[in-house]
């Protein structure tokens, strides 16, 4: 019977968590729809959460593009289809790797930062201070982070796509002697522009996930420094799991198995 109790409690907790996130998102959307946006804070957060993630996104996407090309280019040339390598790298990067990689990296870096900052504000009574001043923590803190990530993550994904393809092109040239012209021509023919846009749409969704999970976990922090640590870890783990789940669902919906 204890197992059933635990399963039941776990289910209730999961629904309560999802409900809390949905409520926070609805509250944030209400402020965005009413254009009650703090522009300066949104720009600051765009810099902190987006621009400061540029170097880590460049590094991870560069090496991922390089290793993808390394694994595929030599075999492709052996089988006489070296002219398809550029297409394979660009196709996979724009549709899956670029959005996913940048989202996971940003979830690890900024999702944790959001949860830690808001969690620290909870335990030092700064959130209550905002409320006691008649200010909404959603408008003051959540909306700027949400907008910053929805804008910056697709931009980071464009960067990741470009860097990853360049990395793949360099390795394809060095190890399989595939010319840059052939690589680019193959990439162009294999990748419809619509797919790039769909990849960027996925990025925007991942931005919402990272901002909302980080904010919600931070605002739900209880119990001092240990609570902040727990919120931070929870934010990263939950965001990454949800990014993978939503990636599958969105790919299925957007690309329909093609």
């Amino acid at each position: 019977m204890k197992v059933f109790d635990e399963v039941g409690q776990g289910t209730i907790n999961a629904f309560a968590y999802a409900g809390g996130i949905a409520e926070l998102l609805a509250d944030a959307m209400r402020y965005i729809a009413a254009l009650r946006i703090r522009v300066r804070e949104t720009l600051d957060q765009s810099y902190l959460l987006g621009v400061q993630s540029v170097s880590i996104v460049i590094l991870t996407s560069l090496f991922t593009g390089m290793v993808f090309s390394l694994e595929s280019a030599v075999q492709a040339v052996e089988y006489g289809v070296g002219n398809l390598v550029g297409g394979a790298v660009a196709f996979t990067t724009a549709r899956e790797l670029g959005p996913m990689l940048s989202a996971v990296v940003v979830a690890g870096r900024t999702g944790a930062a959001i949860a830690a900052e808001l969690g620290s504000m909870v335990v030092t009574e700064q959130i209550e201070a905002l409320q006691s001043l008649g200010l909404s923590p959603t408008r003051m803190l959540v909306v700027p982070r949400l907008l910053a990530l929805v804008i910056m993550l697709p931009l980071l994904t464009i960067l990741a796509d470009v860097v990853s393809i360049i990395g793949g092109m360099l390795v394809a040239g060095a190890y399989a002697h595939i010319s840059q012209e052939s690589f680019i021509a193959s990439a162009r023919s294999a990748l419809p522009f619509g797919d790039v846009l769909k990849g960027l749409f996925k990025s925007a969704v991942f931005g919402v996930i990272i901002a909302m999970i980080g904010s919600y976990q931070g605002l739900q922090t209880r119990g001092g420094a240990a609570g902040v640590g727990k919120a931070t870890t929870g934010a990263v783990v939950t965001s990454i799991i949800l990014i993978f789940m939503f990636n599958f669902a969105l790919s299925y919906i957007l690309y329909g198995g093609h």
């Binding site: 504000m121 030092t124 009574e125 700064q126 209550e128 201070a129 409320q131 006691s132 001043l133 008649g134 200010l135 909404s136």
Partner: peptide
């Protein structure tokens, strides 16, 4: 409540200034 709180000042135990 947000409107009400604008009419009530609150000085917190640890000040809760935004750092």
């Amino acid at each position: 409540l947000i409107d009400l709180r604008r009419t009530i000042g609150f000085a917190f135990q640890f000040s809760a200034l935004f750092d």
